[in-house]
Simulated scan of single mutants.
Amino acid sequence: MIASPLVCGTLGEVYGWHYGFAAAGIGMAVGLAIYMAGARHLPAEPKIAVRKPAERQRLSAADWRVLGLLLAMLPVLALALLGNQQIFNAYMIWAQASYDFTLFGRTMPTSWLITFDAAASVAMLALSVLFWRVWSRRFAEPVEITKLAIGAVVTVVAFLLLAAAAQSAGGGKISLWWAVAFHVLNSIGFAHLVPVALVLYVRMAPQAVGATIVGIFYLHLFVANNLVGWAGTRLETMTADRFWLAHAVVVGISAVILFALRGPVKRVLADAAREASRSRS
């Protein structure tokens, strides 16, 4: 994920896209060959006993409230990810026309931004985990829903920065330092969104439908990517600064909703815990 834009992107932009696609195909073939060669070293799949219909757990009233809340949060999470997913769509088109890619006297391929974004995401995810571990030694660590709201707020700041960069261009090229600052901030926000949201869904999901809820969770990415395609067309009719400001506003709306959902999430979790305790006793 980190190295592929360096190889495929550079070949595509410098020598022709047929070379970039060929490199991608070769990379996938090599990956498949490595998997097939190492398959014999994988542990055997455990045999899972299939429950009879009579043995399956029924959902309680509290479970249905949890499910309703989790489903209601999906469009909110989709809005929160609109900006991040736009990086792989309209952002690359705008970046190619707006950033000054001159580096050490040579022009850097635009696709290298994806490599930097991937590296920043991995680094910020690790640093975020480390930060909250250090924080928890002296203070109470925020619950997942609060971290989601924090991630949305940081993402808003990232896109406000991008809007400021677009406005400062004045018809000229934008320094790559704006891109560095944007990607780092956005990666901090991303580290508090998708991974944290997945943890929240796994923790909140009723045991009887836990695997189903994990699958349903990823629907928010489907919705976000569809919104990205629709929103990306607005870059042709809006100035760049307003375009990125609109993304900040949309993500900001999701941040407000996530902050408002902190109380309901805590209450639903408390109700589910009390009902589970009664059922065990």
Rank of each mutant, 00 (worst) to 15 (best):
H41G: 10
A95V: 02
L176Y: 02
P5M: 07
P43I: 02
Q86N: 14
R56E: 13
A169W: 00
N225P: 05
D100F: 00
R138Y: 02
A140D: 13
V66F: 04
F222G: 12
F131T: 04
G20E: 02
V184W: 11
T155C: 14
T110D: 01
A80R: 05
P142I: 06
V214G: 14
M92T: 08
V122N: 11
T155V: 09
V76S: 12
A260D: 05
A255D: 03
P46V: 03
T102P: 11
R234C: 15
H183A: 07
R56L: 14
W17V: 01
V202M: 15
N84A: 11
A166Y: 04
A119C: 12
L221K: 05
L77W: 00
T10I: 04
L70M: 14
E45V: 08
A22C: 05
A165G: 11
M73G: 11
G31R: 11
A22E: 01
E144L: 08
L127N: 10
R137Q: 11
H183N: 06
R133S: 12
A181F: 14
S128C: 15
V223D: 00
Q85R: 06
G232C: 13
Y19I: 01
K47F: 02
P109S: 08
S136F: 01
M204Y: 01
G38S: 11
L79V: 05
S168W: 01
G9I: 04
A231K: 14
L125M: 14
A164F: 00
I253A: 15
A97L: 05
S4Y: 15
A224G: 10
M124C: 14
R278S: 00
D100P: 11
V184H: 03
